[in-house]
């Protein structure tokens, strides 16, 4: 992917370690009331795997690679789009007192 720079063993471990701490701290502060949207939100975040799928597909040079790469992009795109759709819907439902007397609209959508 990047020929000039390369992330070797220990640098990778540093990145993994710091990212793991970041994830732990960010999620640790989320109130339990948001745990479902948070799980689907983090589910959405790992949808970034679609980027790796695109790399694999665009560099495919055999039918097999094309087929598997296609599957990777298809699944990754589903992960990202679906995760965003459900998380956005759920979060839009959380309203404070006095904001809106009626129930949240189930199809309130945002472009994204």
């Amino acid at each position: 992917m990047a020929s000039q720079i390369s992330i070797t063993g220990f640098v990778a471990l540093y990145i993994f370690m710091l990212a793991a701490f970041a994830g732990w701290v960010i999620i640790g502060r989320v109130p339990a009331i948001l745990h479902t949207p948070l799980m689907s939100g983090s589910n959405f975040v790992h949808g970034i795997v679609v980027v790796g799928g695109l790399f694999a597909l665009l560099n495919a040079s055999t039918i097999t690679e094309q087929a598997i790469g296609f599957a990777a992009v298809l699944l990754g795109a589903g992960n990202a789009a679906g995760g965003y759709a459900v998380t956005g819907r759920m979060l839009a439902m959380f309203q404070p007192s006095g904001h809106n007397a009626g129930p949240a609209k189930p199809h309130h959508s945002k472009k994204g």
């Binding site: 390369s6 990778a12 994830g23 999620i27 745990h35 975040v45 790992h46 980027v51 694999a56």
Partner: peptide, 28 residues
């Protein structure tokens, strides 16, 4: 899994996003 494949593809964005979710998911 996303984090590990990010390393294989030498893509730090995948590594970070994957590992953040890995840690967050473990905590949850």
């Amino acid at each position: 899994a996303v984090g590990f494949e990010g390393f294989v593809l030498q893509n730090p964005a995948l590594m970070i996003a994957g590992m953040v979710v890995g840690a967050a998911g473990t905590l949850l």
